[in-house]
Simulated scan of single mutants.
Amino acid sequence: MDLFLDTNILIDITANREPFSKWAIKIFKDSKKGRWRLMTSSISILTTYYIIEKQIGSTKAKRFLKILLNRLEVQDISKRELLTGLTTKFKDYEDSVQHECAKLCKSVDFIITRNKKDFKNSIIEVLSPEELYFDSTADY
């Protein structure tokens, strides 16, 4: 199974945002065990660095990102996704672009985010980290 991780999940794990980080850690641990493959967008990596660098400094932020990049597949965002993101029914532009990026990953089964309401127009099923583990529709 392939999971597309929204930026907030990456920030949860790198910034150790309690109580959310426990779910992000579990997702990454289960990925390491081969339960699923993790994907994200290039913009999520940049945004994560931007946010955590202010909190923990550039040296630690780079160290965390190196670990993340070794555990994730990263889908690039092109001008096409940026333009398409402007024309969707999504209220939030960044989430619209994330969705367009996730669609490029043909094998994505779920988008994982803590902001499900922002993805209500998604054609890919959206789960919170908790639902990933407790939702009976997530066939794993």
Rank of each mutant, 00 (worst) to 15 (best):
E100M: 13
I45L: 09
T59M: 10
D76M: 08
A102Q: 03
Q55A: 11
L46Q: 07
D92F: 11
L83S: 10
I45W: 01
L69F: 02
V97R: 01
L46R: 04
I52P: 02
T88C: 08
K60D: 15
F90S: 04
I67G: 02
Y49F: 14
L86Q: 10
L65Q: 08
S78K: 03
Y93D: 10
R63P: 00
C101L: 00
G85E: 02
I52K: 01
Q98M: 12
Q98V: 09
R71H: 12
K54V: 07
L46Y: 03
K60P: 06
K62I: 14
E53I: 09
D92R: 12
K60I: 15
D76W: 04
T84D: 11
I51K: 07
S96A: 15
R71I: 05
K66Y: 13
D76V: 05
I67M: 02
D76S: 13
T48M: 08
N70G: 09
K66P: 03
S96H: 04
L104H: 05
Y93I: 13
I67K: 04
N70L: 06
E94S: 11
K89A: 07
G85K: 02
E81G: 02
K91M: 07
S58E: 15
L82F: 07
T59H: 09
I77H: 00
K54C: 04
G57K: 13
G57S: 14
N70V: 02
S78T: 14
V97T: 06
N70A: 10
A61C: 10
Y50D: 09
K79D: 06
K79C: 04
E81Q: 14
L72V: 05
I43F: 07
Q98R: 06
L69D: 02
L86K: 12
K103F: 01
T87W: 04
E100K: 11
L69R: 09
K91R: 14
L83W: 08
G85W: 00
R71N: 15
L86D: 03
L104W: 02
S42Q: 10
L83V: 12
I77C: 11
K103E: 13
T47H: 05
S44G: 09
I52G: 03
L83Y: 07
T87C: 06
S78N: 07
L68E: 05
V97N: 01
S78D: 08
L82Y: 01
V74C: 05
R63D: 13
L82T: 06
T59Y: 10
S58L: 10
E53A: 15
L46W: 00
K60M: 15
